[in-house]
């Protein structure tokens, strides 16, 4: 291997194989991934899987603020003792002991996302299905609860290590009856006497994005199997 050209060729060849097989080919294939239609007779469902996508505009705020540093969006399967799916609140069932395991994430769940924010660390809870976590008692999306969590994470949970994203909110003097969009805080937390906290457009987009995270649509062909377990 004293010939430098031969050396460079070998360098190129040794790297070309993983580059082609692990990066280029799967990347090209992943672009062919298309939503699948449910079969009414088999699945008992109509429409397409994975259904409604994410709110992309808010994902940009999610990326900008570095949420992936601490939050994953990936439910792992329950084989070999790995079962994220049972964690309290990580699926659509918000009870303390969920009845069914949350299904593992599939490539279809991330169709249309430029790069899926699967996450760097899991210092905070998984967010794959966080859209279910913030709901009113009457089942409606709880935007206020999510805003409070973003503005003052320790207002409810004293032990939380989540940073406060105060840059996404404006604190101002209450005028008249106050702004309609102002945050309602739990007892024991106040932004200051005579002051209110109003979300910026970015905050609203981030919240819309988080509420759109419901990555547990039934997989075509597995619906019956899941229903049988119930």
């Amino acid at each position: 291997m004293t010939n430098p050209c031969k050396f460079l060729t070998c360098l190129a060849l040794s790297f070309f194989a993983p580059w082609l097989l692990l990066v280029v080919r799967p990347a090209l294939q992943s672009q062919k991934l298309a939503p699948q239609a449910y079969v009414k007779d088999r699945d008992g469902l109509e429409g397409v899987y994975p259904g409604k996508g994410i709110y992309r505009q808010g994902q940009l705020v999610y990326a900008r603020e570095g949420c992936t540093q601490c939050h994953t969006q990936m439910i792992r399967p329950s084989f070999a003792g790995v079962n994220d799916g049972w964690k309290k609140g990580w699926g659509s069932d918000q009870s303390a002991i969920p009845r069914d395991v949350v299904r593992a994430s599939t490539p279809f769940d991330y169709i249309g996302e430029p790069v899926a924010p699967l996450g760097i660390q899991r210092n905070g809870p998984d967010l794959a299905n966080v859209g279910y976590r913030f709901t009113d008692p009457d089942g409606k999306a709880d935007r206020n609860g999510l805003h409070v969590q973003l503005y003052a994470p320790r207002a409810g949970k004293k032990w939380s290590i989540m940073p406060a994203y105060r840059n996404l909110y404006t604190v101002r003097k209450i005028e008249g009856h106050g702004s309609p969009g102002a945050l309602k805080f739990p007892k024991g937390f106040s932004p200051g006497k005579g002051r209110e906290v109003v979300p910026t457009p970015e905050a609203n987009e981030l919240v819309s994005y988080l509420l759109s995270l419901k990555k547990d649509a039934p997989v075509p062909g597995q619906v019956v199997a899941e229903a049988a377990k119930k």
Binding site: V23, P26, A27, Q29, S30, Q31, L33, S105, P107, D109, Y110, I111, G112, E113, P114, V115, A116, P117, L118
Partner: peptide, 13 residues
């Protein structure tokens, strides 16, 4: 990735 979304493979890359 903006024109041709990679989805989950992107995270793998």
């Amino acid at each position: 990735s903006l024109d041709a979304p990679l989805g989950a493979i992107g995270a793998g890359i």
